[in-house]
């Protein structure tokens, strides 16, 4: 697949935000999961939320998805305040959240079904995305017949098929093995390239974040806050195969580890 070589990066112009969160706080009873968090998510980019477990990454992502209400603050998607889930956002779940009784094609077309798309049409669309994520031939398989990596491809195809502008991914590759995960990461770079979508990507893996992201927001716990935002710039154009050898890549990984290590017991 064609990788980042063709990417045209407009340097030094601040891109318009697809998603912005303003002064978000979220308390679960006594637990303060997020405090006064503001972030901008530029259109067409992949932004990672990186941080140790329990720092509120999932909470923030679900608030953006409209699955959770923030205690205070608000989220805007394309300038409109979020009040609940909407057609402009699609979610990829950490545990895949596939329906075990439904075949791959029915799982992928679930989002379209809920939007009232006619059966034949939605199955056409679903079949297209199943091919796109590399699962052609598995349309009638059931989730239990697939490996973990393949299941997450189904979850990804489901999110892509509803053609939302913003893709929310909660540690999508954490439950797959290392080889599959690397393949996923390369494929993800291609997706960011080809689909004109904004990706918000939660991960706890430093290497993964640096590898796939246009921007990395580092979250720290107790109290939860954005510690810093890192914008890797130099190695993005060098191609998927070379990124992991790039000195800037290695430096950023080290730098992030240096700021996180004090929070890891």
């Amino acid at each position: 697949m064609d990788m980042s070589q063709t990417k045209t990066v407009v340097v030094d112009t601040v891109p318009e935000s697809a998603v912005s969160t303003r002064n978000i706080s979220k308390n679960y009873g006594e637990v303060e999961a997020l405090r006064d968090l503001s972030l901008e998510f530029p259109r067409g980019q992949l932004i990672s939320l990186l941080g140790p477990s329990g720092c509120g990454k999932t909470t923030l992502l679900k608030i953006i998805a409209g699955l959770l209400e923030p205690t205070s603050g608000e989220v805007e998607v394309n300038g409109k305040t979020v009040t609940g889930p909407g057609p402009d956002r699609a979610f990829v779940f950490q545990d895949f959240a596939l329906l075990p009784w439904a075949s791959v094609i029915r799982n992928v077309s679930f989002g379209l079904e809920m939007r009232g798309v006619a059966k034949s049409e939605r199955e056409d669309i679903a079949a297209r995305y199943i091919k796109e994520v590399g699962l052609g031939g598995f349309e009638n398989a059931y989730p239990h017949e697939l490996s973990g990596g393949m299941r997450q491809r189904v979850g990804l195809a489901r999110a892509l098929s509803v053609d939302a502008e913003v893709l929310l991914m909660d540690e999508p590759f954490s439950a797959v093995d290392e080889q599959t995960r690397r393949k996923f990461q390369e494929d993800l770079l291609g997706l960011v390239q080809n689909e004109n979508k904004t990706f918000i990507f939660v991960t706890h893996s430093i290497e993964e974040a640096v590898y796939v992201s246009d921007q990395i927001a580092i979250l720290l716990p107790r109290p939860s806050r954005v510690h810093e935002i890192i914008r890797p710039s130099g190695f993005r154009e060098k191609g998927a195969d070379n990124i992991r050898r790039d000195p800037e890549y290695l430096d950023i990984v080290d730098q992030i580890w240096a700021s996180l290590r004090t929070y890891v017991e």
Partner: peptide, 10 residues
């Protein structure tokens, strides 16, 4: 997570 998936997909 299955119920949440349903909500997320409207």
């Amino acid at each position: 997570s299955m119920k949440e998936m349903g909500k997320a997909f409207l």
